[in-house]
């Protein structure tokens, strides 16, 4: 009976994951490997293709592509285009925070936690969750953005001016290693819940109920991984080890954003992201 409860929890979290996250790993992998029936994503690989494609960043549906050439004629400095691209990226990130919040609320017991603790769990967990989810959209050559409509190459991201060029490379390095674990969407749903329910976040008021919730999800994840990946030895331990790398990644990310705020006079951070990053680490 206990195992049946854990299976029910796994099913529930997988359904929430599908409900709140628009681009699943399964769909992203299909697009990346060219196995979808729809058109291939628009590729951004240089400033010209960024100028052409940036209009559609954050679009769920790509407009008719005949219009593209018109945008290529606009003469702008690379620096302006980079900054505007960063703004669009931020707005998608804020939307993703909303999706993660809805997912967190669907974890049984989460909304019964102290409201201050819910805020703390999200503040500390949300960037880690987003980095994990971004890994699903990445391969060694680039990443999908805009709900899978655009593929942005890793080389192009590396070619941006400092510190923009330093933002994604550590995430690619992490993603390549993380993707080798070959988790599927149902595993990911549980892993994300485990991350959110971390009882060691600074400033938590009532740790015990959080740890109790996390323990149940951990048991579910362990069972799920054994059933879903019977031949993958020590997968549960390997997955949990990634949580240490994630904290370092978030720490570095927040410091880069703080650096950006100092060096880019025109940059204004989205208010939701400001809230999350202020006094984070």
């Amino acid at each position: 009976p206990e195992s049946a409860d854990l299976r029910a929890l796994a099913k529930h979290l997988y359904e929430s994951y599908l409900k709140y996250f628009p681009l699943t790993k399964a769909k992203a992998r299909a697009i990346l490997s060219g196995k979808t029936s729809g058109s291939a994503p628009f590729v951004i690989h240089d400033m010209k293709s960024l100028t052409e494609g940036e209009q559609f960043i954050n679009c769920r549906q790509m407009p008719v592509m005949e219009q593209r050439s018109e945008f290529g004629h606009v003469q702008e400095s690379a620096s302006e285009v980079e900054l505007r691209f960063f703004h669009r990226w931020q707005y998608r990130s804020a939307e993703a925070v909303r999706e993660v919040t809805e997912f967190a609320k669907s974890i049984p017991g989460f909304v019964s936690l102290d409201l201050n603790d819910q805020v703390t769990l999200l503040k500390y967990g949300v960037i880690e969750v987003l980095i994990i989810m971004t890994a699903s959209l990445m391969n060694k050559d680039g990443m999908l953005i805009s709900y899978g409509q655009i593929f942005m190459t890793r080389e192009f991201l590396k070619s941006l001016r400092k510190p923009f060029c330093e933002m994604m490379e550590p995430k690619f390095e992490f993603a390549i290693k993380f993707n080798m674990l070959e988790l599927d969407d149902s595993d990911m749903a549980l892993f994300l819940a485990v991350i959110i329910l971390s009882g060691d976040r600074p400033g938590l008021l009532n740790v015990k109920p959080i740890e109790d919730l996390q323990e149940t999800v951990l048991q579910t994840l362990e069972l799920q991984l054994k059933m879903n990946h019977p031949d993958s030895l020590q997968l549960f331990a390997k997955v949990l080890q990634k949580m240490t790398d994630l904290r370092q990644l978030v720490n570095d990310h927040v410091h880069l954003i703080q650096l950006l705020k100092k060096t880019e006079v025109d940059m204004c951070l989205h208010p939701l992201l400001q809230e999350i990053m202020k006094d984070l680490y």
Binding site: T101, N116, V119, L122
Partner: peptide, 21 residues
Amino acid sequence: LKEKHKILHRLLQNSTSPVDL
């Protein structure tokens, strides 16, 4: 903490109404 995280707090409290991000 809630005061310093008004948007996050609003996202947590509003379950159905769309939040203006």
